[in-house]
Design a protein around this nucleic acid. Sequence first.
DNA 1: ATTCGGTGGTAC
DNA 2: GTACCACCG
Length: 534
Amino acid sequence: MTTRAIATHRVVAHLDLDAFYCQVERRDLRAKTAAGRRDGRASAEDVPLVVVQYNPFERGGVRALAPDDDRELRDGFENHSLIAVSYEARARGVKRNMRGREARALAPACAVVQVPTRRSKADLTLYREAGREVAAVLARGGTIERASIDEAYLDLTESAKKVLEETAWATILEKARTSHAAGASAVSGKGYASVAWWNRDESEWREEEKLLAAGAYICFNLRKACVDELGYTLSAGIALNKMLAKLTSGMNKPASQTVLCPDHTSTLLDELPIDRIRGLGAKFGRELADGLNVKTIGELARTPLRKLEEVCGEEKAQWVRKVSLGLDDDPVKAREMPKSIGTGKTFRGALAIRSIASAKHWLAELTAELNDRCEADEEEWNRVPKLLTLGLSSPDERETSSGHCSRRCPLRPGADEMAQDALTLLSKWASGRERWSITGMSVSASNFVSLEKDSGDVVEMFKNATKAAKAPASVSATPAASPIKADQIDKNVLAELPEAIQREIRASMGLLDKSTGGGVKRKNEITNYFSKKR
DNA sequence: ATTCGGTGGTAC
DNA sequence: GTACCACCG
C-alpha cells in the first residue's frame, strides 16, 4: 500500500559549505603554520577570519599574491572589501559588505586574508579546486548537481531506498537523528523538539519519512567524509524537493543538517517571507509582493490563480502557485562539470579603459587565465569549449540597455588565438563609436564538446579499475568494495599521475577503513584520465 | 551599504 | 545571438 507512494517521493539534499572561502583559507593557514611559514603568529584555529578581495583604490591596491604566499594582511593594509566571514567573526558582529578595518575594530584578533591574485586580478583557482574536491566526495552519495562553487544538490532517492533495504533501522536512526527536524517543534511545543520526532516508534514512521531519515543518514556520512578527508564542514537540508532542501539547509548553520518534516511544510511556508524562496529573492519577488500586496508564502498560496496570472502571466503563475504549496518538480540534473568557464575584471572610475592598446593588454591577461583554466578543464573532463564570449560593461551602453553587452565567436584554442579573437570582437564594438570607455570586461568559454574516448593500452591496463569505478553507488555503514585496490596500481605509476587523481585514488583506498561507504562513482577524474588520449 | 568575480537560466 | 535576471562568497 505504501509501496506505491514511494515511487512518487524523492529525497533531495542541498549541501552548502560553511563560509567556504574562510574554511579554505583556514586550512591553508593550518598547513602554513605546520610548515613553520607563519613566523610565530598565533594558531589559525578558532581565530576569527575574513577573506577580503582587494580594492584598487585602497592602500595596497592589487597586490600580487600567489596562493602559496603569506596572504594575511596587516599594518593597515587590510581595509579591503570582505567577501567571506568566518562564524567566529560573525559572532563578533562582523558582516559581509564591511571593510577590513571594521572587521578589525570588532574582532582585533581577526585574520584578514586576501584572495590570491594573478595577472593583476583575483584568482579564485584555490577555491574552485577545493570546491571540486568536495563535490567529488559528495558525488559518492547519489546524482549530483553542482549549483555553485560551494553548493550542490543531491538526489538521494535511490541511495536512500537501498539504505532502507540494507541497513538496520536502528543504525540509520543513530546517525540520522543527529539532524535537526524542522517543524518538529510544532508537535512537541518545545524549542529543540527534534528529539520527539526522532523518538517515535518505528511503526509511526510513514514511508517517505523513513526515506528522508535514510537521506539524512547518507548526508551525515557524506559530511563526515568531507570533514575527515578534506577538513571542511558543510550544512545540509534534506527534503522532498530542491526548493525545500535549499530552504532547509540554511536553517541550522554551521556544520549541521536539517530534515524537513513533510507534515510541517505548509506551517513552515505559511509565515515565511516571500524573498526566502529561491527565485523570489530579488526583483520578481518584489514585484509579486508589491503587485499583490502580500508578504508571506502563505498569502501567496491563498491568492487566486487568476490574480497571480494578472501579475506575472500564466506560466510563472503556475510555478509560483506550486512553489507556494511546497511543490517543486525541478529534477536534480546530473552535472558535476561547469557549463562555462569565465573570467573578468572591473575597471571603475579613473581606471576605465579608453584605448585599444589598454584593452588589448587586459584581454591578453584575461584570455591567458581563460586558456589555463580551459586546459585544466580538458585534462580533467576530456572536453573542449567551442564558443568564446566577450562581455563588456560600458557607460556608452547605458543609453540603450543596462550598460552591458556581449559578443561571441567560435573559440579557437590557445591564449593568443583567444586574445586575438576577443580583440576583434571588441574592435568591432568600438569601431561604431568615436569615443568609448569600458568599465568591465569578461571572457568566457562554453559549448563544450567531449573528445572521443579511444582505446589504448592504458585503458586496457586499468580495465578493472574502470569497471569497479562504475559499480552502483552505495553509502552505508558497511562499505562496499573500494573502486581501486591498492595492489592494482603500481606505486611508480601512481606517482606520475596528476595530483588530483592521486588524491582520488588514495581517498578511495582510504575508504576501506572509514564509515562512509566506498564503492562509488567518482569515475570522472579516474576513468576520464585513463580513457584519455595520451 | 551592493564591491568584485563569478555561475546558471530564460526571454525575445 | 543578445539582454537580462537571480544568486553565491
